[in-house]
Design a binder for these strands. Structure first.
Lengths: 221, 221, 221, 221
DNA sequence: GATGAATGAGTCTTCATTCAT
DNA sequence: AATGAATGAAGACTCATTCAT
């Protein structure tokens, strides 16, 4: 650095600090856009969403989204990836804090509902994308959710069965059912974003379904 | 007759047939439009659907939907009402053929999945409308589904509890869960419209959840 | 026809007449759009042209072009094909009315300039498209002009050489030169659309270039 | 110096070098921009050109063109003036190296085609601008080309006629024809930028057209 | 009732231009 | 002088809806 003339050194210093700020600013702008997008997409669906509204809801003028995302499609896909990953991470973090499979299952629903209540817009976006129309987006989100399926199967169900806490259910089918129950119940929220059902009610239900019993009720056709 | 151009032939035929049949024909036109609408709405969502495509898919030309439905919105609402009612009726019919609550629960899932497989387009439309975006449409469908909630609560769960077949669960919450499990699992279909899960697997799961037990697994947070 | 009830026969007759009119109307609309397009494209170039202006200049409102042409690109291509063919046809018709190669060459420039003066918009469009930017459009027009190259080569130059009226020039290169001279000179018009040069002046020039001589002026580098 | 970030290194260099060289650097930047502009304008036409692409193709970032040219329009006009002048100068230099009018005419086409092959981008820009759309730009280029018309008329044709080498043609019209032949033939290049025609073929053609003859072929309409 | 041309508001996207750093 | 984020006007294209036939 000694070769740099003093003036340039100063400039160099100055140029480093704004750069960090700038990056923060850019990331913040991107985040604002993603949040606004989640809101708009959740309310109107992909086709019904207006990308200009998104840009303006994020505090920019019409064209500015396109400085961050090359198209409406790219914007949803980015949102699916980020919100999906955030959802998975939030739940996985809290589930992994306990080790007992039963506790983990309870935590799964607790954390899941908490995510919905803390991130209502993202959650609503995710649910409507998962079940709403548009196969391509559904598949993208399904990909993003793979770790959550894995979490339920490998970190909750499998050890629970192995430890004799749960009955010997089919792993794949039951994972699907537990996920279905989570995603379905968490999509019912009141106008304040509160999930209608209580996580412990839900957990109770599935724990009953998983418990070992002597006599099996037959459902044969 | 061979000299008549096809369009006029159609008119001629229409003018000859008795009034009751003519009504049938009109209803048939309406039905064709509703089916085409279900397909388009299921694939593209409400906002993404093209009402002209619907008209043409039904065998009419562009403006003709408007002879049957005053607007795109009115068309979806009619479709929600009719498809929703058909869905409820299909399941209720089959459930009511047996009287044992356990058998009824099994029938509920059997009939439900069968409906999805026999009416894939309607079913896909209903699911995407129920979870997809657009609060107004969701509420309309929720209304249409009230009889199905009632069926589960009053004709399956309540008698089952009363007869001591099911444990004393919360009626509303459990109805929600059973419905959630149905709607969630029936939305997972492969490319041929076959539901991924087996109805008996699902029924087994919920019957386990409902069975009376001596020792209760606690999920207390 | 005897099988048709009388009312339908009347309808049949009525339905035939409007149909012909309708077709005329549609073709007229299409032609109006193509003319308006030629004007706009000639003035602004492809990229600079505003397709809404074209629609409105043709007496329609904004979106109506799209009832006739699926895209801006398709519109230019149709225009290139139609105007190019008209240009070729106009010249070929008049050239073929005489049989002497020298007369034909004169007619070629006469008819060519007349076309420019009678169809100034189309002509300007064609010239700007041929030399202007956009390789794809240039190639499309080049294709449309093939018959004009063929005309010059096979119906004017070749017989002229064979009859000993023209010197033994290279057929391809000279065709290019004659076409170049035509296209280049016909692109210089005054504000009233009148070509600056006189067709006989131009014809004289090329006839001198083609005449047989004893002594050849060498241009050897 | 190794610690200086690249941007600053550039500034450092700039600040050390003498004023005259610095001006050269600035001019070099301007030249890079003009070259990039010629490329973009030639490919896309004025309306289709993207001024940000130009800036980036010149090695700058988006806004930087505006430090050199106040607007897109000003940029083309500057380019027209500079490239037009370069074109004229290139040809005039080589033509003036010989004094015989016939040799000069041959040189005119030789040098003209050589310019196209050595400066393909500029040449393509000039041709498309001359014939392409946008009257204002056409006129600007026409102005820039005045010295080339003057060259042909006063330094080639007039002395040739005076020396009895060419027949007594109309000066203005023939100048137009010679220029037309040049501009028209030089616009036909293959994908490597090579002009399709040979300059001597072209020169031969016009020399034949200009040569004195005893018998004149009449083209009288 | 059926048709399909016409309408025009609305949407996605591009890009010349500005300006704070 | 260079940067590149932001702006917002403008343009290609879509489509719900109307209506004369």
């Amino acid at each position: 650095m000694g070769d740099c003339p003093p003036k340039l050194f100063k400039e160099f210093i100055l140029s480093r600090i704004p750069k960090a700020d700038r990056e923060d600013t850019l990331n913040a702008a991107r985040q604002r856009l993603l949040e606004a997008a989640a809101d708009e997409f959740a309310r109107q669906g992909f086709a019904g969403a207006n990308i200009n509204h998104i840009s303006q809801a994020a505090g920019f003028s019409k064209g500015t989204v396109y400085n961050y995302f090359p198209s409406k499609q790219a914007l949803v896909l980015a949102l699916i990836a980020e919100a999906g990953a955030a959802h998975v991470r939030y739940i996985a973090d809290q589930v992994s804090q306990v080790s007992d499979p039963i506790q983990r299952l309870v935590r799964f629903y607790e954390a899941g509902f908490r995510f919905v209540e803390e991130h209502p817009t993202q959650a609503r976006f995710l649910i409507t994308t998962l079940y709403g129309s548009g196969v391509e987006l559904q598949e993208a989100l399904f990909q993003a959710y793979q770790p959550m399926f894995h979490l339920v199967a490998q970190d909750i169900l499998a050890p629970g069965i192995q430890q004799g806490l749960f009955r010997r259910v089919d792993l794949l089918a039951t994972t699907n059912l537990l996920m279905t129950v989570y995603l379905g119940t968490s999509s019912n929220v009141d106008e304040h974003g509160k999930v209608f059902m209580d996580p412990h009610q839900v957990a109770d239900f599935v724990l009953h379904a998983l418990q070992r019993v002597n006599e099996k009720i037959s459902s044969g056709g």
